[in-house]
Amino acid sequence: MRLMRCERTSAVRVPERWAAMLAALVTALVGALLAPPVQGAAAQERDPDRAVIGGYAVNAGDHPWAVALSSRARFGSERSGQFCGGAVVGPRTAVTAAHCLTREVLGVDVGQVRDLRIITGRGDLTGNAGKEVAVRSVKVNPDFDARTNKGDVAVLRLAESLPSSSVVPMAGKGDPAYRSGTPATVYGWGDTTGRGNYSNTLRAARVGIMADSSCERAYPGTSNGKYDAATMVCAGLEAGGRDACQGDSGGPLVARGKLVGLVSWGVGCGERGRPGVYTRISAVQSVIGTPRA
C-alpha cells in the first residue's frame, strides 16, 4: 500500500464544527474496518501519521530553511500546531508536499484554514523561539496526482520576507546532487520510531540518494505504490534504519547544499528495501517558478 507521510492524529485537531469532527471520526472508523490487515511498521503507517528515523537533533537556527507548517485551528496548540514540513526557497516563497494541503489532511479545504503559517528557527515546537510567518496564498500543483503521488508539491507565498540566509537553493535538472550514492540529509519533526513517538525538536538523518533502478524494484507498481523516476527521487540506506516518517511530509531532502526533494511517501519507516520517496525538485521547478522577494 502506498502511504503518504503526512500527520493527522498526533496533534489534536480542533474542528470548526462538531459535525466535522463526527464526520472525520466516522470516516476513520469505516476506513479501519474496511482496511485489510497489515503487519509491522506498514500497519502503523496506514493512518498517515508518520521525525526522522535513525536521526539526531539539530539546531533549527542553523537550518532556517527547514520549516514547520502550522495551523493551531486545525491541529491544536500543542507542538505549535505543526502537521507537515516545508522548505524556504525564496525570501517570500516556501514549498511543501501537495498532499499536506488536501481536505483529507486538513479536514477542510485549504482556503478555509485562516491561520496557516510556516515556522522557521524554532527547534522546539513547544517553545516560542524563531519566527512564525503567515501564508498569504497557496498554489497546489495542478498536475498533482493523489493516486500516484506524482507532482507532489505546493507553493506557499509568504506574507513577509525572510532573510537570504533562510533560503536553500534548488538543484536543477542534471545537478550532480541527484547522482546515486550522493550523501543527503532529511529534516523533520515527525515520528522518530515508526510507533507514533513524535519529536518536539528538529531532527535530521543522513541518508544517500539511491539509484532509480533500486527504487523501481522497491516500488514496482503493486499495492506498495509505483516509483516514477521522472518525478520522484528516493533516498535511504540499503540496510534501512534511516528515513523520514509520519509528520515529515513536505520536509526538505538536501544534498550538496541544495534542495533535491520533498518528503512525499513510502512504506514503513526505515525498513530494509523500502527507501523513502521524495518529490524530485528539478521535475517541479516550472510549478515553483523563480522565487522573488
Rank of each mutant, 00 (worst) to 15 (best):
L22Q: 12
R8Q: 13
C6D: 12
V26K: 12
K150N: 13
T290G: 12
D47V: 15
G123K: 07
Y198E: 09
G221F: 10
V140T: 04
S137L: 04
D115K: 03
A184L: 02
A51R: 06
E78V: 11
A244R: 04
Y227N: 13
V263I: 14
W65A: 10
G196L: 03
I281E: 01
T201A: 15
C215H: 05
P169D: 02
N197F: 11
L3T: 11
P169Y: 00
T185S: 14
K150L: 11
V254C: 06
I209M: 06
T148V: 08
R122Q: 15
Q246W: 00
S10P: 12
P252G: 10
A28P: 03
F144Q: 06
T182H: 00
V133I: 14
H99I: 07
V207E: 07
R2V: 13
G85S: 10
D62N: 12
A32Q: 14
D212S: 12
R50E: 14
K173L: 11
P15G: 07
S77Y: 05
R13H: 14
A20R: 09
P64I: 07
M170P: 05
R274W: 07
V233A: 13
F144A: 05
S199E: 10
G276T: 04
G250R: 03
T222I: 10
R195F: 15
A283G: 09
V58G: 10
A24F: 02
F144P: 08
S161L: 06
R272G: 06
A229I: 07
C6H: 08
V260Q: 07
A32T: 13
K139C: 03
L162I: 04
R122A: 13
V254R: 00
K226N: 07
G251Q: 07
M170L: 10
K226W: 01
A60W: 00
T120H: 07
A19Q: 14
A239D: 12
T93R: 08
K150D: 15
W189C: 05
A239T: 15
R122I: 06
L259N: 00
